[in-house]
Structures are given as structure tokens and as C-alpha cells.
């Protein structure tokens, strides 16, 4: 299974989760887990998605998500999960 981690941080507002999940659905990425916290108005969402059967190349998926950066003025990262595994697991 190929998994990617999407992180979205910024000012909390209505519809962030829906917008991100919508793009995942559109590009064929299956949402496995979602965790989100709001600390003093700062919204941080982490989403683990399965991109094995994604209908678009990874770069396209990243570009589609990057649209949210401007649209909602949030910081969006999408990264292959291996970077976190190698950095934080021995």
C-alpha cells in the first residue's frame, strides 16, 4: 500500500475537511485516518491517505491540493509517509 500524509495548518474556518476530502475523492485517494486539533484558532489537520489506486500521478495530486493554499489561505503539505517513518522510527 502506498500512503501519503496530508497536513493542513492555518486559521480555522468552515469546510476545510470537506474541501480536502473532496480533492482526495476526485483523485482516487482513499482516506484512512484523520486527526485534527484546533489550538487558539490555529487549525492543524493530519490526514493519512492510501494513494495506491490514485487516478492521477502524485505530482498532480499535490498540485490539486496546493490550490487550497491560496483558496483558503492555509498551509498544505502532501508527502509520502516514508519521510516520517525514516525520520522518527529506527
Amino acid at each position: 500500500m502506498k500512503k501519503a500524509v496530508i497536513t493542513v495548518t492555518g486559521k480555522d474556518m468552515v469546510g476545510i475537511l470537506a474541501r480536502v476530502a473532496g480533492i482526495c475523492a476526485q483523485d482516487g485517494a482513499n482516506v484512512l485516518e484523520v486527526s485534527q486539533t484546533v489550538l487558539q484558532d490555529v487549525f492543524a489537520m493530519i490526514m493519512l491517505v492510501d494513494i495506491t489506486n490514485s487516478t492521477v500521478p502524485f505530482a498532480q495530486f499535490a498540485d490539486d491540493l496546493a490550490v487550497i493554499e491560496n483558496e483558503l489561505a492555509m498551509k498544505v503539505h502532501v508527502m509520502h509517509e516514508d519521510i516520517f517513518n525514516s525520520m522518527h522510527r529506527i
Binding site: T7, I46, F84, H88
Partner: peptide, 16 residues
């Protein structure tokens, strides 16, 4: 299993 704190730490290292 990935932990939230680890993920945010990596993002912070890259961004800031």
C-alpha cells in the same frame, strides 16, 4: 503508526 507530534515536527523543520 505515525504520531501527530512527529509529523508536525517534520513540517516545522521544513517550513520554518
Amino acid at each position: 503508526m505515525l504520531e501527530t507530534k512527529d509529523i508536525l515536527e517534520t513540517i516545522q523543520m521544513i517550513d520554518d
